[in-house]
């Protein structure tokens, strides 16, 4: 029993040191012999037991005596703990791979692979509200009328991706290009829901709405530019006008539309529609009925869209 634990532990340690690698080899030999009901020949288990006892005895004689007497049962306990922790570790790795967090989709909490929690960060919709995280709020597209929002149609049977983001939000800026890449790569349909967070006004929502209304083709170029632009200048109307021009829009027409009362009314309605999703931070990306909050690694979006074997498709 001890050999198995030692083999697993030493194999991991062996990644870092050659002497542990040698011990791991001996442990494996011991495991193979034990599996075939033969005794260890390398004396590996004896060796490790003596080393452990030698270590413990210098700290506590009673501890060493206890360990010596109950070495085998203790080995079993450690084995089960190891199996348990291995299972949880494997689960963590799998979850991290598929959702970007060791704890599951949109779950915060410490994750060794993402120690700073980058994959679960988001900009809160309303900084003054306490941010409730994933668990108790159900995000949904049900009952949300998406018809008026910018839509980039994909091929036949294109799967829809709904992106809720804000030009000024760092996390949205990080996720947006990935989503664009994903849409292009797998021919998905993209529905873009702009939602201003933090200090931003509805101004850009209106600009976006008008731009799309005026020229749905050019809108996506504008959208890309706004996500890439210097975010400190997004509230500067002259700057936005420049961006509009760069995308081939008649800035004046867009501005004119944006100031229109009807636009204001529609945009308000649209924002209310976005809120119906219960989302609480940007970016929020709906893919195949799953809401992914915060910027995830590309593979997580791809897995949500195409499954684990996305890279084969």
């Amino acid at each position: 029993m001890f050999c198995i634990i030692a083999f697993i532990v030493l194999s991991i340690l062996g990644i870092f040191s050659a002497s542990n690698r040698q011990l791991a080899k001996e442990a494996l030999d011991c495991v193979l012999r034990r599996v075939t009901l033969r005794p260890c020949t390398t004396g590996f288990d004896e060796k490790m037991k003596a080393k452990i006892l030698g270590y413990v005895i210098t700290r506590s004689e009673t501890g060493a005596r206890f360990l010596n007497r109950y070495f085998e049962p203790l080995s079993w306990i450690f084995f089960f703990l190891l199996v348990g922790s291995t299972f949880f570790a494997a689960r963590g790795v799998f979850l991290y791979y598929t959702t970007g967090s060791c704890n599951g989709l949109n779950q915060s909490g410490f994750c060794v692979f993402d120690p700073t929690g980058q994959n679960t960060q988001f900009s809160s919709v309303d900084e003054s509200c306490p941010v409730t995280s994933g668990g108790d709020v159900v995000l949904t597209l049900e009952g949300v009328n998406l018809s008026g929002f910018p839509r980039l149609t994909g091929g036949a049977n294109a799967k829809p991706i709904v992106f809720i983001g804000s030009y000024g939000c760092d996390y949205s800026r990080k996720a947006y290009p990935m989503i664009r890449r994903l849409v292009q790569r797998y021919g998905a349909e993209l529905i873009f829901l702009y939602y201003p967070v933090k200090e931003h006004s509805d101004y850009l929502a209106k600009v976006g709405y008008c731009a799309y209304k005026l020229d749905p083709q050019r809108f996506w170029d504008l959208n890309d530019r706004l996500f890439a632009a210097d975010k400190s200048r997004l509230e500067d109307e002259a700057f936005v006008q420049g961006v509009l021009e760069e995308s081939g829009f008649n800035a004046q027409s867009v501005q004119f539309c944006a100031k229109d009362f009807q636009t204001e009314w529609v945009v308000k309605q649209q924002l209310a529609e976005v809120r119906k999703t219960n989302f609480y931070g940007t970016p929020t990306v709906f893919i195949q009925n799953e809401a992914l909050i915060g910027p995830k690694p590309y593979r997580v979006y791809a897995i949500a869209l195409e499954g684990l074997l996305y890279w084969l498709k």
Partner: peptide, 14 residues
Amino acid sequence: VDHHRIALMLDQMA
């Protein structure tokens, strides 16, 4: 008592 165990423990301890 296994002699190797004694030797290994002496090595480990001191």
